[in-house]
Design a protein around this nucleic acid. Structure first.
Ligand SMILES: [Mn+2]
Ligand SMILES: [Mn+2]
Ligand SMILES: [Mn+2]
Ligand SMILES: [Mn+2]
Lengths: 219, 219
DNA sequence: AAATATTTTTAGGCTTGCCTAAAAATTGTA
DNA sequence: TACAATTTTTAGGCAAGCCTAAAAATATTT
């Protein structure tokens, strides 16, 4: 139906919209897609012709409902495939994204549905991101950053704000596993570092750089 | 590494070579790929430049070892994905090919290897076709056509010569399942039809059109 | 408000993979 | 062997997606 490239543009615009920005400008799309502004203008015109987004010269773009559907469906496929790679094929959470970038463009509604069933209808991908439903509903998580959480509450490590492989590999190194329950025991204003305790009297320390990229849920 | 289109050309040339033809001519490639001879000539030149095949004007083409590797690896991925779709996602054997045509172009050696392991190292796909090994070895099956088999031997239905969905759906309708053991009880020269018996005194009849497209192994 | 800097669009061009129409080579036939 | 039919290649062109360089519009300073 839509090309690999078109889906990537729509997904990028969708993600930029989710990050608060009302109208998306040419340069930010170019930056994410590692391409040039002139190329973005070309593609924007084509997507506008196909009613996938609204475009007014020099004013940026916004997805139409039709465009949002395509984008969310691509995100849905991406995250389901990440679950498959992680849960079934035992890839590390730092390895799944690149392969899912390819798999998300496989075009078969039946495949997506059967994959979802095979995976037992997962609600979140290996990075804690929510999986949109078949009808495009995406439950927004009430996660907060670990660096913003209060002491003396039971927190569940539930996601990451930084999806880069280097960050995820660092989390592997310091043995961070999503789903782990923690309580903040100490917050250091000086360097922003945080000490937490886990079940079984174990403790961990997070630098500010790490704490600001871990998402937790208050239990 | 190689484009979707390049892989499809190489796979097509490989399959035509397997069907006995020593040197592959332009028109037969065009027919399989549903494209025009002029387009094939264009692509052939590019593939020859990349040393994936040997080409002499007006003399047809033959894959180089390098080209054969790419083709066989694509076939390997195709058949592994068919196993996944059939065994794990419970697709019918008439549904898997189209989706595997897309999945075979996913580019990740690690993915292919992990998929193979997840599937428990299958040797044959749902249609009875052998799965090439990682190093490109493909065991050629000693299957014969049911219409050529002799009576009073135990035969195992092991594959199909016709891969079209209509044929496979017809086999579903008459309850043909690969792996079933049969013995020919009657061969009718008049219309080429064949009667067989199964375990438990059940019997089946195959028209010539069906019998000439079922592959059996002599037990 | 004018000048300057930044962003966006336009113009023109490239590659890949496809097409049609015409030319060239090969194959089949009289 | 000469003519006809078929196959293959060449020539020229198109759409998708990308590029650089230049022009136009918008935003920011002074
Ligand atoms: Mn991802
Ligand atoms: Mn993810
Ligand atoms: Mn197939
Ligand atoms: Mn098959």
């Amino acid at each position: 139906m839509y090309s690999y490239t078109e889906e990537n543009y729509l997904k990028t615009i969708y993600k930029l919209s989710e990050q608060g920005n009302e109208s998306i400008n040419t340069n930010s799309i170019a930056e994410v897609l590692q391409t040039k502004a002139a190329s973005v203008t070309d593609m924007i015109k084509k997507l506008a012709d196909k009613k996938l987004l609204n475009y007014e010269k020099y004013k940026g773009v916004a997805l139409t409902e039709k465009g949002r559907k395509v984008a969310v469906d691509t995100v849905r496929k991406h995250r389901l495939w990440e679950c498959f790679l992680y849960d079934k094929l035992k890839f590390g959470w730092d390895e799944v994204h690149e392969i899912a970038e390819q798999l998300e463009h496989i075009n078969s509604e039946l495949l997506t549905d059967k994959l979802e069933e095979f995976l037992d209808f997962p609600t979140h991908d290996p990075h804690g991101d929510p999986i949109p439903t078949k009808n495009g509903v995406i439950k927004k998580s009430n996660f907060i950053l670990l660096c913003d959480a209060k002491p003396n509450q039971t927190l569940v490590m539930s996601g990451v704000a930084d999806h880069t492989a280097v960050f995820l590999q660092h989390l592997n190194k310091i043995s961070v596993v999503l789903g782990t329950e923690i309580q903040i025991t100490e917050k250091n204003d000086y360097d922003g570092s945080i000490a937490v305790k886990l079940s079984g009297n174990k403790s961990m320390y997070f630098s500010k750089d790490v704490a600001k990229n871990i998402l937790v849920k208050v239990k």
